[in-house]
């Protein structure tokens, strides 16, 4: 009984202080699925309905399930800060709904982009050999990195807009913000994503691309800072006697 009360209190503290916790867990779960699919022979991408590429010269593209899983694994870590902003700017009872609304808009943009990008890569790959396709996308990624359009988009990835406090307007604003941030994120990262496509969605390449995206947004110490924050929050959740400010439930 005492343990369950303690766990409930710890859960409440985490929810209060780190409202985006479930998105972080979802990203972690998505990575585990991807790694499992890659390294566990019994569960290949093919079992989940892959799409044959238009050309035999590039790796097969994953099916819808794996595509969504890839978006969750790669893109959620990049927007954890945005999700936190959205939650804190929303009424207590609407925090999760607001974050979900943001993710609907954001993921919608990315899933659509994945489809278009896949089709585009297929078209290019039909004309070039695999090595040339990969080399082309890597060179394009470096060139894009230096462009002012990318810098503008990167800056806008952090934007926050006024959200209506309640009602359908609140949902509209959250989805709209997800669309705006997602659009800028696509402009910022589409070439990097094309490298992921041309190399067959290998988890190592995907992980590398995610690290690049996180570091360009939050600096070279982003992962060390996140680890320190996680340690601090867990220690606080498990040891604090009671929430200093209990939410009005």
């Amino acid at each position: 009984m005492a343990i369950s009360v303690r766990a409930a209190l710890a859960g409440q503290r985490i929810a209060w202080r780190v409202p985006q916790w479930w998105a972080a867990l979802a990203a972690l779960a998505a990575w585990l699925v991807l790694i499992g699919l890659t390294y566990w022979p019994a569960a290949s991408i093919a079992h989940l309905g892959h799409i044959h590429a238009a050309s035999a010269s590039i790796p097969e593209r994953p099916g819808p399930f794996v595509s969504v899983d890839c978006v969750i694994a790669m893109m959620l870590p990049v927007v954890l800060f945005n999700l936190r902003q959205v939650a804190i700017a929303s009424l207590w009872g609407r925090r999760d709904r607001a974050m979900l609304g943001f993710l609907v808009g954001y993921s919608g943009i990315w899933i659509t982009t994945s489809l278009l990008l896949g089709a585009g890569i297929d078209a290019v790959a039909a004309l070039l050999d695999p090595a040339a396709t990969i080399a082309l996308t890597v060179i394009a990624a470096f060139a894009w990195h230096l462009s002012p359009i990318k810098r503008r988009a990167l800056r806008a990835c952090h934007q926050m807009v006024p959200l209506a406090p309640r009602g359908w307007q609140a949902d509209r604003d959250c989805v709209g913000l997800g669309l705006r941030v997602g659009s800028n994120c696509v402009v910022n990262c589409w070439v990097l994503m094309s490298v992921v496509f041309t190399t067959g969605h290998h988890p190592v390449i995907m992980g590398g691309a995610m690290v690049v995206m996180v570091i360009e947004r939050f600096g070279p110490h982003a992962f060390a800072d996140a680890a320190r924050a996680l340690k601090r929050e867990l220690a606080f959740a498990l040891t604090a006697p009671s929430p200093a400010v209990a939410p009005l439930l």
Binding site: W16, R84, P162, L163, P165, Q169, A240, A244, V245
Partner: peptide, 18 residues
């Protein structure tokens, strides 16, 4: 510690329009 323990404040209400 008092500040750290409070965590992010809770939003109680907001205007609907600009």
């Amino acid at each position: 510690e008092a500040v750290v323990r409070r965590g992010p404040p809770e939003m109680l209400g907001a205007t609907r329009e600009s």
